[in-house]
């Protein structure tokens, strides 16, 4: 018996997200009186694999097959299902991110295991097995009962946090049985920005809306994000008008984020926008319209013109940071 957690790596390294997942899996393992097995797919050094022990994994299984360096939905689902069977996993945990959404459903079909996507807490009970998840993009929650013997959960990012729980760890390599049809898709070209903080990883996000007046006024947004070590984002109309790239669009149909702080400059806060950012711990809103709906969701609000507020804010934050 075990709780199996799939931990993705980025160029051979784990992220905070990976450790949050192990912490969460350890929470479930405690409830069910069992142990956590972490599964890594790809080329990850032993030193990095051992870090899983800090959060409670007692075994790390490493599958290092050159064919698996790119995410291939079928092949990954096949590998993870094989490991789940071998480890007699009762519960499987994935991140509710690109890879988790791509792979967990296939595993669900292979193992005939009920899936709850976007869980926000530990199971509220394990018999029956009930998990709380977001629905309607955070406008409500559902408590979902998984009826199958094996259960699968994808965890919404930043909804559990890190819990250190050092364990003795055993690292094992595993060679899965894969067929040609598992590799019916392949990556022919990769275009990736490097060196920039990703929106999904950022603890601080600085975002602008139509109130910024035009793409030429984005300098202060980028400056503030740089100053705080954060990422930049924007509202849907800003992306649709081509002021900013689409991957920066946060909101219901764009990216759903949950940073520590979300700065909304010149964003009125349509309900679809709030759906994408409402899980932020702190929301700071600056808008010239005192009746803008963003103020209903914000923790701190300023009614004012972004063009005058932003430079002042940047200078004062520089002072706090001693720059």
């Amino acid at each position: 018996m075990s709780v199996l957690v799939y931990i993705e790596n980025w160029d051979g390294k784990f992220k905070k997200l990976s450790f949050e997942l192990i912490s969460y899996a350890q929470g479930i393992a405690k409830q069910m009186n069992t142990a956590v097995v972490a599964l890594s797919i790809g080329n990850v050094a032993e030193e990095e694999l051992k870090k899983a022990a800090n959060y409670g994994a007692s075994k790390v299984i490493s599958v290092n097959d050159p064919g698996l360096n790119q995410l291939v939905n079928q092949a990954y689902a096949s590998v993870i299902s094989q490991v789940a069977v071998k480890e007699e996993a009762q519960v499987l945990v994935f991140a509710h991110n690109m890879a988790g959404k791509a792979v967990a459903p296939g595993v669900s079909v292979k193992l005939k295991a009920g899936l709850v996507s976007g869980a926000v807490a530990l199971p509220s009970s394990t018999e029956p097995f009930v998990v709380k998840k977001k629905i309607y993009t955070g406008k409500a929650f559902a408590y979902v009962t998984i009826k199958s013997p094996v259960k699968i959960i994808t965890l919404a990012q930043n909804s559990y946090g890190l819990a250190e729980n050092p364990a003795e760890v055993y690292i094992e390599s595993f060679t899965p049985q894969l067929a040609d049809h598992d590799f019916a898709t392949s990556v022919i070209e990769s275009n990736k920005q490097t060196g920039k903080i990703l929106l999904s990883d950022a603890e601080i996000v600085v975002s602008g809306g139509l109130g910024m007046k035009g793409p030429e006024f984005w300098g202060p947004i980028e400056e503030l994000a740089g100053l705080l070590g954060g990422a930049t984002a924007c509202s849907r109309p800003v992306a649709d008008q081509g002021w900013r790239p689409h991957y920066e669009h946060v909101g219901q149909t764009g990216k759903i984020i949950a940073p520590n702080v979300y700065f909304a400059f010149g964003i009125s806060g349509a309900i679809q926008h709030l759906g994408g950012v409402s899980s932020s711990k702190i929301i700071v809103a600056v808008n010239k319209d005192k009746d803008a709906p963003i103020f209903e969701s914000a923790n701190y609000g300023v009614v004012g013109d972004v063009a005058t507020v932003l430079p002042v804010l940047i200078n004062l934050i520089k002072e706090v940071k001693g720059q």
Partner: peptide, 18 residues
């Protein structure tokens, strides 16, 4: 394989500090 046992609305957010 799953069914909803209950629904809940999020807690009202504290008032924004202006």
């Amino acid at each position: 394989l799953t069914e909803v046992a209950a629904y809940e609305l999020p807690e009202a957010k504290a008032k924004c500090k202006m």
